[in-house]
Amino acid sequence: MNCYGKFAHIYDNLINSDIDYSTWAKKIMNIYEKLNIDRENYLDLACGTGNMTEKLALYFKNTWAVDLSSEMLSEADIKLRNSGLKVNFICQDITNFELNRKFNLITCCLDSTNYILKESDLQSYFKSVFNHLENNGIFLFDINSYYKITNILGNNTYTYDDEDITYMWENYLEDDIVDMYLTFFIRHEDFYKRFDENHRERAYTCEYIESTLKNCGFKIINKLDNYSDKTVTDVSERISYIVTKL
């Protein structure tokens, strides 16, 4: 699957207008501080270009970040070095990562968990997190809800156009997996350069996520509607989980 290659270089231009990382980070730290946990070690999984890493690294003594895309990690490394932050970037698969250390806070934001398509890989991912989490640590992640993937993404087509970037986004849903085919046209002086990306996400029910978490040894502290204090409903589009070890 061609995923997060050339897209890494324009990712922030597209995502930063839709995602308020500062608000998300403040909410995460508000939750974290109420639990009175040490600010020693933080791990950001599927860190992408380091937007959440950059916000939360400010609060911790040591920060590590993992992603499967070397292109995204390169963008993140440049960004955080320019911000004067020291972060350890590692290129690994989050379904089976090994860092030989434990963390007080682990995050995995922006529906990266939905990119895990196999149930066995989801279990391996949760177990890897469990093994890297301090006994009183917190794991905070979010998912695109079953409703969003099956009803909003579904079999729909979206387009975007401005002076520098144009894209077409076509979705095909089958057996709870949405295939997203994106065609980009990026302006280079007086011409446009095309590249294509294919992304796949799986729709997981809350019942399945929660039962898998418990089977892997986690206790669910809370779940939120998109990093807000609103209660999760049947039409919530993003669901955030806050869990710890049993």
Rank of each mutant, 00 (worst) to 15 (best):
S83A: 13
T183C: 10
Y204M: 06
T95N: 14
I165R: 04
N222Y: 07
E119Q: 08
R81T: 13
N215Y: 06
I220K: 07
G84V: 06
V129F: 03
N226I: 05
I90S: 13
A203V: 11
F126G: 04
R81D: 10
R101P: 00
L85K: 11
L117F: 10
Y227H: 06
K214A: 11
E134C: 13
V87G: 00
N100M: 11
T159H: 12
I209N: 08
N135C: 00
N131E: 05
D161I: 14
C108E: 02
L153P: 13
C91W: 00
E189D: 14
L213I: 06
L85F: 02
N151W: 05
N104Q: 11
I143S: 09
D225H: 09
E98R: 10
S112F: 02
I143H: 05
R194I: 03
N114I: 04
D93G: 05
E134Q: 13
F191C: 14
N155I: 03
N222I: 02
Y192A: 11
Y125W: 05
T183D: 15
K102A: 06
F185W: 14
L117G: 12
L173K: 02
G217Q: 08
F191K: 15
L80G: 02
D176P: 01
F89N: 07
N171L: 11
N171F: 08
L173Y: 05
C108A: 10
S124T: 07
N222K: 11
G137T: 04
R101Q: 15
K214F: 04
E197N: 11
M180G: 07
R200Y: 14
D164L: 00
N215T: 08
Q123C: 14
F130S: 06
N104C: 07
E189W: 00
K102P: 01
T183R: 10
Q92T: 04
E189Q: 07
N96P: 05
I152D: 13
D176V: 00
K86P: 06
I152G: 06
A203W: 11
K223Q: 12
Y192F: 15
K79Q: 05
N135Q: 01
Y227K: 01
L85T: 01
T183L: 09
K214Q: 13
Y146P: 09
K223W: 08
F184V: 03
L99A: 06
F185D: 11
K223E: 09
S112L: 03
D111M: 07
N104D: 15
I209P: 07
N131P: 00
F141S: 04
M180A: 09
Q123A: 15
L99V: 08
K86R: 13
D93I: 01
N144A: 13
F195G: 03
N151P: 07
S145Q: 07
N82V: 01
T157H: 11
K219T: 12
L224Y: 11
L110I: 14
L122S: 09
N104K: 07
N215E: 15
T212D: 01
N96H: 13
N96A: 13
F218H: 04
E189C: 01
N114H: 05
Q92R: 03
Y158A: 12
F97W: 06
H199W: 09
S120H: 03
N151V: 09
D162I: 06
Y125E: 03
Y147F: 15
M168A: 15
L153K: 12
L182F: 14
L99H: 06
L224N: 00
E98I: 09
W169L: 10
